[in-house]
């Protein structure tokens, strides 16, 4: 593996009395597909928000491309494509306006690729975002996160709202293509089957602590039962149950 794109070191974050992240360390290598899995409230989104600089570390440090995302938001965010689980695209924009607005921020924006994605995702350019279904909004969010071919793609629960066909055919293909081009993907999901299909490396997080982080093949190998490779689902239940 080459150098780390994301370096999280002993990151701790508390919200009042609750510890959301407890001394989390994570290193994401360039060109890999990292799956971040955990139950609801485990701390996946909190970790992603620290990587994006939306949260300030309580203790520890976060470096993305060697930069502090809080101190240098432009340096970091201009190289990241991000899909939020909140579906917070401005409802008053049309799909066309959203694309036009987004392309202004990224010199590497690829118009042909954006149009290809728009057609693949069957998005009407004149439709207002607020009139789109949840799945269509997720596709629009994915389009604007992908079309400038970011060095790092961060997807927070990308499957949320996507139908099974899009999940399997499009999302999986997109993620693999990006990784094949040498770019990096970090995505959180609670759909372990999906993570198993596309991730090279899996990080399990529970109650703000990383309980397991290793290449997927290594994880499976180390959990072999009676010569059989277990599914990620079974490993998750076993590890999170213990944690």
């Amino acid at each position: 593996m080459s150098e780390a794109v994301i370096e999280v070191s002993r990151l701790t974050r508390r919200f009042g009395a609750r510890t959301a992240l407890d001394s989390v360390s994570l290193s994401v290598a360039r060109g890999a597909v990292y799956g971040l899995v955990g139950a609801n409230g485990a701390g996946k989104t909190t970790l992603i928000k620290h990587i994006l600089g939306l949260l300030r570390p309580g203790n520890g440090s976060v470096r993305v491309f060697g930069l502090d995302p809080v101190a240098d938001p432009v340096g970091v965010l201009s190289r990241i494509g991000y899909l939020s689980e909140e579906n917070d695209l401005p409802g008053w924009m049309t799909v066309e306006e959203l694309i036009r607005y987004q392309r202004a921020f990224y010199p590497r924006w690829d118009d042909a690729y954006a149009e290809e994605l728009r057609q693949t995702f069957a998005l009407d350019p004149t439709a207002k975002i607020k009139t789109l279904s949840k799945g269509q909004k997720a596709r629009a969010g994915l389009l604007i996160a992908l079309a400038y071919r970011p060095e790092l793609l961060v997807l927070d629960e990308p499957s949320s709202g996507l139908d099974p066909i899009v999940r399997r055919d499009i999302l999986g293909a997109v993620i693999r293509t990006i990784a094949d081009e040498g770019r990096t993907v970090l995505f959180s999901s609670h759909l372990l089957e999906e993570v198993e299909q596309v991730a090279d490396h899996v990080t399990m997080i529970s109650q703000g602590t990383i309980v397991l982080s290793a290449p997927l093949s290594e994880i499976k190998e180390s959990h072999r039962v009676d010569g059989r490779l277990p599914s990620l689902d079974e490993i998750f239940v076993a590890r999170i149950g213990k944690a």
Partner: peptide, 12 residues
């Protein structure tokens, strides 16, 4: 602030 606005690659 919504993540959409907060993740604009612009300074504050």
């Amino acid at each position: 602030l919504s993540p959409f606005v907060a993740t604009r690659p612009l300074t504050n």
